[in-house]
């Protein structure tokens, strides 16, 4: 590492923030692009499991709320790709790499949504897990990313309220509805526990070293458990992990998440990966002519 790079590292590690036009090491730029692009991809791919349920939402209010939520996710991806584009990778390239399978997206968006219970669990718990990661990005060393995260976290917090309300309504409903929620929670618990990633120590995590993230994976998972397991129990739901408990020192104990599954899924082998990328490929192909007409540079 050159003296200039050392100085940069010291600067970000002491809380310094970088703007688009500032000098930055190539490795930092590459890590930023990879990390932020995956976030943009995840927002966009996160639309697909939920979009099917806009059409099936059981009341007008739920339909409006879910449509607005999914719209927010697309809006987030739009903002995030803009940040990536300023770092040197245009949005169209990101989308090409997404559909070709070259770039990745979060594990939770590779799974099917089977019932309206899944819709509630996604909006409540998947978004809760995501907001924990996103709040840790408010202090990101790359200032433009940190700035848009404020808006994103603000909107995500509404999604959690919406999700919680969907779940509460069902838990206060019939036995059949409570069963839908419990089954959905059982399906999502594994992916939720994998969501924050391998428990590598923060100091070995390149994204932490560069202060792109401000906390380690294990820490984020603990925060999720601490914030949400008590609420899950309070609603009368059970978590399908017999080892799950909070120790006297305040640390949550749990069964080791299935890291092989996580790796398998995020490398493009999830139960819905191919179908969802396929849908994106097809529709991108079918609307190619529109971009050619509208964007002179695409002609």
């Amino acid at each position: 590492m050159s003296a200039r790079e050392d100085e940069f590292l010291e600067y970000v590690q002491s809380g310094g923030q970088v703007e688009t036009t500032d000098w930055m090491p190539d490795d930092y730029r590459a890590k930023l692009i990879k990390f932020i692009e995956m976030h943009g991809n995840s927002e966009l791919m996160g639309v697909l499991p939920e979009r099917e349920w806009i059409l099936r939402a059981p009341t007008l209010q739920r339909k409006l709320a879910l449509t607005a939520k999914v719209q927010d996710e697309v809006g987030h991806s739009q903002l995030i790709y803009r940040v990536v584009s300023d770092l040197g990778k245009p949005r169209e390239h990101c989308l090409d790499d997404l559909i070709s399978g070259k770039s990745k997206f979060h594990n939770v968006f590779h799974y099917p949504t089977k019932t309206w219970g899944d819709v509630g669990v996604i909006a409540w718990l998947v978004d809760a897990a995501a907001i924990i990661s996103q709040k840790a990005l408010l202090k990101c060393s790359y200032a433009p990313y940190a700035r848009i995260m404020k808006k994103i976290c603000w909107e995500e917090s509404f999604h959690i309220l919406h999700g919680r309300d969907v779940i509460l309504t069902m838990m206060n409903g019939t036995d059949a509805q409570r069963e839908l929620v419990q089954e959905a929670l059982d399906r999502w618990w594994g992916p939720l526990m994998q969501f924050h990633g391998n428990p590598i120590p923060a100091e070995d995590d390149p994204m932490y070293i560069w202060r792109i993230k401000s906390q380690g994976n294990g820490e984020a998972r603990q925060q999720f458990l601490d914030g949400y397991v008590p609420q899950i129990w309070e609603l009368g739901l059970t978590v399908s992990d017999p080892k799950l408990r909070k120790n006297d020192d305040g640390v949550w104990e749990f069964s080791e998440p299935d890291w092989d599954e996580l790796k398998h899924v995020v490398t493009g082998h999830g139960p819905k990966t191919e179908e969802r990328l396929g849908l994106r490929r097809t529709t991108r192909g079918e609307t190619e002519w529109v971009r050619r007409v509208v964007l002179p540079e695409a002609a």
Binding site: V47, V74, Q78
Partner: peptide
């Protein structure tokens, strides 16, 4: 709302959703 997530531009996803 069937266009959500699959419009020709992200801007149109947002517009059609609105």
């Amino acid at each position: 709302s069937e266009w959500t997530g699959i419009a020709p531009f992200l801007e149109e996803d947002v517009a059609f959703s609105s």
